[in-house]
């Protein structure tokens, strides 16, 4: 019986870990994809080729944002923080779904 529980816990924890990794990988794909986030148009991001330089490099996100929620808001609608921003309001204008933005947040949080 204890064995069984141990196995179960192990199984659950690896699968949670796996799904977090999945979200990060998918978030990366969404961020890099030209017809999804296309964040590289403006931001330097690790591993991204030929980035633009209109926005700041996306590094050390945990130091820049206190919560994932704040990071999510920057991507959902950057104009909340800066009304004059050039960064497209990805959530508000339906460029990305809530779920897609969530995955991008996971990816950025891992940087």
């Amino acid at each position: 019986m204890p064995h069984f529980i141990l196995v179960l816990i192990l199984f659950l924890s690896t699968s949670i870990q796996a799904s977090a990794d999945d979200a990060i990988a998918m978030g990366k794909q969404l961020a890099f994809s030209q017809n999804k986030g296309n964040c590289l148009a403006c931001h330097q991001i690790a591993d991204g080729l030929m980035p633009g330089n209109i926005g700041p490099p996306l590094v050390r996100m945990k130091q820049r944002f206190q919560t994932k929620q704040q990071l999510q808001q920057q991507i959902w609608d950057a104009s909340i923080k800066n009304p004059n921003t050039i960064m497209p309001p990805f959530g508000r204008n339906h460029l990305l779904t809530e779920q897609e933005i969530q995955m991008i947040v996971e990816f950025l949080w891992s940087l």
């Binding site: 980035p51 209109i54 050039i86 497209p88």
Partner: peptide, 22 residues
């Protein structure tokens, strides 16, 4: 547009910057 840009964003505010490789 869905990306919410004006002409001035790219050619007045950000000339000299790179949009991807452009």
């Amino acid at each position: 547009g869905q990306l919410n840009f004006s002409c001035s964003h790219c050619h007045y505010q950000y000339p000299g910057y790179k949009l991807r490789s452009e």
